[in-house]
């Protein structure tokens, strides 16, 4: 058979498949349209795409689900770009925070509209129009009112408390969604197993990691301390794996609730090929784990009851 043709770049894309919060398209009362615009990503310090809803009242985040080798059928058309773009409501404080921190170094109370300014990203001043922005500034700043004017000064203490609440909310959601937060061996050939090491600390760390995608590395480090968690070293530097994670030195057992899975889950998938990295990870992370066979042993079941 003739060798396959190489892929050519997709330069003609002018279509996007989006899953969008209803609020974007429902708030048509205001006469201005929602807008995609670039602002400074507080975690990367580089440009990211956001949406300001009608009247700039609500901020949204834009994320793309993207796997290689995907395309869409949309009605009676092909759309080559196989991405699925999520537009979800975002807390504008995450974007405002870096500007407040920066001005906070001067130690002065200042009007926020003089603080939230960026030559590279002029759109950022529109963040202050968001309904929640001014109402929630006290989470990250001290406030002073002089006459009718409000002044703010960044507060690390307030910010830490606010971020801690964010982490706690996130933990609740992760548990509710049954997100697998443990760092145990990722099993692709077996029904997903959940270990007792999916404990509070794992949830906290996972949620902290998620929140860290919205704050600077320094703040992320401080937050870790505020949560009472120690820094984990990267796997490269760690000592023998058995010492790595003391807290997970507990027996693991099969997850109780299988009902949420489709029965299709039980059909054995052909084992996916592991990447070299996954293989190495699988070797590293067996700390405190019983052999596979024990997942299904009668003992583990008995413990459940």
């Amino acid at each position: 058979m003739a060798p396959k043709k190489r892929r050519t770049p997709n330069t003609q894309n002018d279509n996007w498949v989006v899953i969008s919060a209803d609020s974007i398209i429902n708030s048509t009362k205001h006469n201005s349209d929602p807008a995609f615009l670039r602002m400074r990503n507080p975690s990367t310090d580089e440009a990211s795409l956001y949406v300001l809803g009608s009247g700039d009242l609500q901020l949204y985040e834009v994320k793309a689900f993207e796997e290689d080798f995907h395309s869409w059928f949309v009605g009676q058309t092909v759309q080559r770009d196989g991405r699925l773009i999520f537009v979800t409501p975002m807390d504008p404080l995450y974007l405002i925070l870096p500007y407040l921190i920066k001005s906070g170094r001067e130690g002065k109370f200042q009007p926020v509209d003089q603080v939230v300014k960026d030559e590279d990203f002029p759109a950022c001043s529109r963040l202050l129009s968001c309904t929640r922005s001014l109402a929630s500034l006290h989470h990250i700043a001290e406030e002073k009112e002089v006459g009718s004017q409000k002044f703010h000064r960044y507060s690390q203490d307030r910010t830490m408390d606010w971020l801690k609440k964010k982490v706690e909310r996130t933990v609740v959601a992760l548990k509710k969604k049954n997100v697998c937060v443990g760092e145990g061996v990722k099993s692709t050939t077996y029904v997903r197993v959940k270990s007792e090491s999916d404990n509070q600390e794992d949830y906290l760390r996972y949620a902290h990691g998620l929140i860290s995608d919205y704050i600077s590395a320094d703040l992320s480090k401080a937050l870790l301390g505020h949560l009472g968690l120690s820094e984990l070293k990267s796997p490269k530097e760690t000592e023998p794996p058995s010492k790595k994670r003391k807290l997970s030195d507990k027996p693991v057992e099969a997850e109780e609730d299988y009902t949420k899975f489709n029965s299709a889950d039980f059909a054995r998938k052909p084992p996916k090929k592991m990447t070299a990295a996954q293989k190495t990870l699988a070797k590293v992370d067996k700390s405190g784990m019983k052999p596979m066979s024990s997942f299904f042993s009668p003992k583990a079941k008995a413990e459940k009851k």
Binding site: W16, N41, T44, L49, V62, K63, A64, E66, E67
Partner: peptide, 9 residues
């Protein structure tokens, strides 16, 4: 989840 931020549409 193969999710990533975008910097342009």
């Amino acid at each position: 989840r193969r999710l990533k931020s975008l910097n342009s549409l």
